[in-house]
Design a protein around this nucleic acid. Sequence first.
DNA 1: CTCTTATGTCAACGGGCATTGACTTGACCG
DNA 2: CGGTCAAGTCAATGCCCGTTGACATAAGAG
Lengths: 203, 203
Amino acid sequence: MRMNDTAAPVLARPNPRKRDAEATRAAILEAAKAHFALLGYDRAVLRDMAREAGVDVALVKRYFGGKEALFVEALRASFGPDAIQDWDRATLAREVATTLADSPHVDEARTHRFQFLLRAATSPTTAPLLNVLVQDRFLGPIRDWIGGADDNARARVFAACYIGFLVERLIRGEALLGREREVYIDRVTAIFAGLMSETDAPG
Amino acid sequence: MRMNDTAAPVLARPNPRKRDAEATRAAILEAAKAHFALLGYDRAVLRDMAREAGVDVALVKRYFGGKEALFVEALRASFGPDAIQDWDRATLAREVATTLADSPHVDEARTHRFQFLLRAATSPTTAPLLNVLVQDRFLGPIRDWIGGADDNARARVFAACYIGFLVERLIRGEALLGREREVYIDRVTAIFAGLMSETDAPG
DNA sequence: CTCTTATGTCAACGGGCATTGACTTGACCG
DNA sequence: CGGTCAAGTCAATGCCCGTTGACATAAGAG
């Protein structure tokens, strides 16, 4: 029995949260996606995600089983099969290059997904979980999208470059400006375009 | 006072470790370099490094101050200024491409360094520490090495690709074989070669 | 209304690990 | 020999964080 039983709660819960399993599960997952992508597996804290979702930590266990399971789920959700196919062959190279050149669009949906992948890949905890997923949701789609001869190898290089540019952007101190920005975009565009073509003239 | 004061130590210390500050400091640093590079900041454990160095954990504090300081030190040490300059312009592109193609040479010195950098870059804890270091020890040397017009932008793209290939190799499930390996090497070589040239014909 | 069950809350527990400070031991100098 | 200080050891301590199980409460069926 509480001491202040008779007193009204100091702060009435603003939104008494209807009991809706689907909704809370989704809220947790959403928070998890953001936190894992932003902080990586180790530094992401369940309590924080729960708070952001307006939910008790214990529910993470109820709905997902544990941190690792939640991570996998979040990764899959964040990296749905439709993530790639809508790319436009004609404009993609330059468009992506420009996005990459202009620095801190961290919350932009497309890169967000890949940032998640990157974090997952570089944490030894989670890397083992990736083999299947990477093939199914990343390399596979890119390969199909890129098409043509040797699509496997080209997709692999394509994906690698993309991730590399993401990392570089991540640790980039100041924004790219003027000529440096132009050259950067041109070079990145050239690389992507070269990989999209079946017959790239080697140096 | 110990209970078994009179009893001889069950295991005499095999190597009673001369008291040599320099040596132990170096030993710790060496272990730290390996552990951080391999596991990343969060999963690397001071106790393990100490054990590997044949040293008590407390000495980490004495000699370095703490985990974070040790990390910075290890990163600097592992990423000395001489890391880049000895690359050979003529053969580098294909050589590196081949190394990258053939998977698990994790302990190979050159990639080891970069793997360290990669881990540092993708961990939010340590990323802030990198701005200066990256410029001084990574982009700068690559820029000087690559030379020519727009060296800054080209070095940036070069570095990004390199890191990307490292990540890809990290999450690569099975080894590259046969034609896929050939194409992979060719494409990667082409990218590096293109970036080394001042005038790369864009697609 | 009552019983049941899904949903949500709360307060520990426990492991892992960096950090700390008091203590011991070797080495060098007078 | 004895004193002093650096080098090394040891045993806590305390924090962070995932996990757990016991409890409360809404909602819906009968």
